[in-house]
Amino acid sequence: MLGQVLFSGLALGSIYGLVALGFVVILKATDVFNFAQGMFVVCGAYLAVTALSLLGLPFPLAILFIILGAALMGMGVHAALIRPLSGRPILSIIMVTIALSIVMRAGIEILYGPAGRTLSTPLPSGGFLFAGLRISQLHLTAAAVSWLCMLAFGLFFRFTSVGLLMRAAADSHEAATIAGVKVDAMNRLAWAIGFTLAAIGGLFLGQLQIVSTELETIGLLALPAVVIGGMQSIPGAILGGLLVGVIEQLASTYISPKSADVMIYALLLVILLVRPWGLLGQKAINRV
């Protein structure tokens, strides 16, 4: 029983981690605490619906469509909303991301109708027994792909020259500008990556559940994940995502499903009071 619950928690947590990773990339680059991340997940799911059900693209092409579409949207959001607001108080920018999610929700419901849609992909959906655990292939695929994406991003961020420039730009805008880094282009790239990671999360969440704008709530679990893991930390986001997934499943099993949220946020409060920089974050934080 415990093993089964842990497996599903870790599988879910991997998807949350992926979405949270996208969140941190955006936060690191542009200091934007993005409340629209949940809607980015929804967008990813609807891009999948568009590619697979409406356009009837073959699966590999559909994946390409989702990634390109999400990256373009991320750049669009950055160019239209985030860049004009750079330097504004943090609360104004948070508010603009909230307004953005209102607009995106309305837009999606106008284009696709309010009724949810089912997503059928050629991904395996069966299950098998392994060491007494029943492993769902879809869960396993989702987790594996999430880990692959996270790994790929980690390698890109650490070892490629663009990744290096991104890190430089994120660490200090001024220093990077002086050194000739195109900070603006790096920020745009960060938004593209953040949106794409959320969209891939949306592809899996949409298949595990059904595709509707209600997926936003699930996408927003990235917020506590990021804070628990450490706001500026990339491994922290992944750890935070896994923790949120496991806590959710454990609380649902042993306490009650409605206690899941409160458990996650109770942990968040404890972390904020005891270790505000998060589990894996660095201790550089404004404290009174």
Binding site: F33, I90, V227, M231, L272, L273, P276, I285, N286, R287, V288
Partner: peptide, 8 residues
């Protein structure tokens, strides 16, 4: 607020 500020 005695301990953390801003976004935290």
């Amino acid at each position: 607020s005695l301990r953390v500020q801003g976004l935290y």
